[in-house]
Design a protein around this nucleic acid. Structure first.
Length: 580
DNA sequence: GCCGTTTTCGGCCCGACTGTTTTCAGTCG
């Protein structure tokens, strides 16, 4: 059973218990356990085999026993009894805006509603407003909520699609007179791979003016809520945007609050309470009611005796403890990157010539690049035949001379791993390449054992330097391959093979939690763009964000190393390979 | 139900906004 399936079960239990009206802290415990499992960097099955379940944060005796039952028998008696009492699909109603557990319970008990269709019928018949605490306006809102949930818009959008919208909003908000700061917060600032709501925090004295101007932005389709300090709207394309306005002297605490995550904030506020301070978006309050205002986030953390914690780490995954102990890593940043080692040209499916790509790399301050066009069997991407590969080498040699002293250029290849685990070029061809990337583009749906051993066989090939986009997932479009990640990370360490964080926002592969686990085990990474066009070189910000979420430092990243160290490592890879 | 630089028992973040209410409950983040 995969972590996500386990997480879904416990999250559903939490919803069902809450609808049933159980004690809220019991509900929260199940929800927290579910979220914790979802965010885990390694498989629960592995932890279960080591009999270490209770070391998972949020998992105690009771939930550990339930995980054990699920993994050994495939079912959970507690859950089966629960859904005899509360209809299993009732939590689906919680997805509708402004419908929470109390209302779901009310509609179910009073009207027998057990599905969204039931609810819609009841609302249209005017049955909801006859219930206590529900009026005509609520009934109307619920109907709207059902309508928008039926439009089939995805609940979370790719960070690559939301980020440009955010930057445009921020530019325009900054132009409103009196605005001192405007900054994206929430999951975008934490560089999560998908974004639910776009959150923006603005610093200005005149709140009302900012609110009025914001609500007039042309993309705003519907105002969902509007108060003194906070407004939330839905855009024409369905994206939800929330804007907070706070006075500049409180901007730090407001930004900290809106950045989250919820889990991080709860833990930080608990830590504040342990020091006799109550923290909110407005600042700190002491026991005697005195206020401490924070214009910057640094002041928020410093007030608690902590170093500033990078937004990407704020997931309640040990960052506050690391802050207390002063062991936070120095995270990698974009300026640390020295080379691009996974990119394409028009020799295969890239859009421009090698020379144009080289110039684009130079413009972006890179010191070395590796062309890694596709290997021969990937016909759909015009993979290079042996002859074309030789021709490309000649061309690259000419380019090397042309760019000498400015940019070092190498010839690599993105080599297909064939269905049986062998590689798409013979060994002597691989040996002649400067850098060998291997990747899967076909037969991604093989079962776990088969696809894992296929990758392991490929990783053990002595000429392989790096594995690209390991899981093969396309976020929201294609599920990752069913891999034994733990085994692959071990093999990568043993064979000195690099694993890629692919920066394409549709991939982000390795993903954050896997990258963190890989580095824990001693794997070295690369942060590449897989560029097929000069502009793709700018996608690296997303890979950097993912790496920072994984607590990665520049020491962990091959293409953040200076050219000398990069080349030395390639030499070392050659000599350290397991021989067969 | 979980957890411990106040605790193995008694806590468990904090506030904005809305609608249905006359002071608050529910939802959301």
């Amino acid at each position: 059973m995969r972590n996500r399936e386990l997480a879904e079960i416990f999250e559903r239990i939490a919803d069902l218990l809450q609808i049933r009206g159980d004690a809220i802290y019991r509900v929260l415990a199940y929800r927290k356990a579910g979220e914790s499992i979802r965010g885990l960097s390694r498989s629960v099955v592995g932890i279960w085999e080591e009999k270490d379940l209770e070391n998972i944060p949020g998992v105690g005796k009771a939930i550990a026993t339930k995980i054990d039952e699920l993994l050994s028998t495939g079912k959970l008696i507690f859950y089966e009894k629960l859904i005899e009492e509360v209809p299993e699909n009732l939590p689906d109603l919680l997805r509708i805006a402004d419908v929470g557990p109390k209302k779901v319970a009310l509609f179910w008990k009073e009207l027998g509603v057990t599905s969204i269709d039931d609810l819609e019928k009841a609302a249209k018949a005017g049955k909801l407003q006859e219930l206590p605490g529900v009026g005509p306006r609520s009934e109307q809102k619920i109907l709207e909520g059902i309508r928008s949930s039926k439009k089939g818009r995805p609940e979370r959008l790719s960070i690559g699609s939301v980020n440009p919208i955010a930057q445009s909003f921020i530019r325009r908000l900054m132009k409103i007179p009196g605005v001192v700061h405007a900054e994206a917060a929430g999951s975008l600032r934490r560089w999560r791979e998908t974004i639910g709501d776009l959150d923006i925090v603005v610093a200005a004295e005149d709140k009302k003016r900012v609110m009025d101007e914001f609500l007039k932005f042309s993309e705003v389709e519907r105002i969902k809520g509007q108060g003194e300090t906070k407004a939330s709207v839905e855009l024409l394309d369905g994206l939800r945007v929330q804007v907070w306005v706070h006075p500049p002297e409180r901007f730090g605490s407001a930004l900290q609050y809106a950045t989250g995550s919820q889990g991080h904030n709860v833990r930080l506020r608990e830590y504040a309470l342990s020091q006799g301070l109550s923290l909110s978006e407005h600042g700190f309050k002491g026991k005697n009611g005195n206020e401490i205002l924070c214009a910057s986030e640094e002041e928020v953390y410093a007030t608690l005796g902590l170093p500033w914690i990078a937004p990407e780490m704020r997931e309640d995954l040990g960052e506050i403890t690391a802050g207390i102990e002063d062991t936070l890593p120095k995270l990698i940043s974009e300026k640390d990157i020295k080379g691009e080692i996974h990119m394409h040209s028009d020799w295969s499916d890239g859009r421009v010539s090698m020379e144009d790509m080289a110039n684009a790399a130079l413009e972006r301050g890179l010191e070395y690049i590796v062309f890694t066009d596709h290997s021969r069997s990937l016909g759909i991407a015009s993979g290079l035949s042996l002859e074309r590969l030789r021709d490309q080498r000649k061309k690259i040699n000419r380019l090397r001379k042309k760019f000498a002293g400015e940019l070092d250029i190498f010839q690599g290849s993105e080599v297909e791993i064939l269905a049986d685990g062998s590689l798409d070029y013979p060994d002597e061809v691989l040996e002649a390449l400067d850098f060998v990337i291997i990747s899967l583009h076909s037969s991604l749906r093989q079962d776990r054992e088969k696809i894992t051993s296929r990758l392991l066989a490929a990783i053990e090939n002595e000429h392989v330097n790096m594995v690209a986009h390991l899981s093969g997932r396309l976020i929201g479009k294609r599920e990752p391959a069913d891999l034994d990640f733990e085994a692959i990370f071990q093999a990568a360490v043993e064979n000195n093979v690099i694993l890629e964080i692919n920066s394409n926002p549709e991939r982000l592969d390795l993903k954050d939690t896997h990258a963190r686990r890989a580095v824990e085990l001693g794997v070295k990474l690369a942060i590449t763009t897989d560029a097929h066009h000069p502009e793709h070189l700018d996608l690296r910000i997303y890979g950097i964000g993912t790496a920072r979420r994984a607590w990665v430092t520049s020491e962990d990243v091959l293409n953040a190393w200076p050219i000398r160290k990069f080349l030395d490592f390639l030499e070392k890879q050659k000599s350290s390979k397991i021989t067969h």
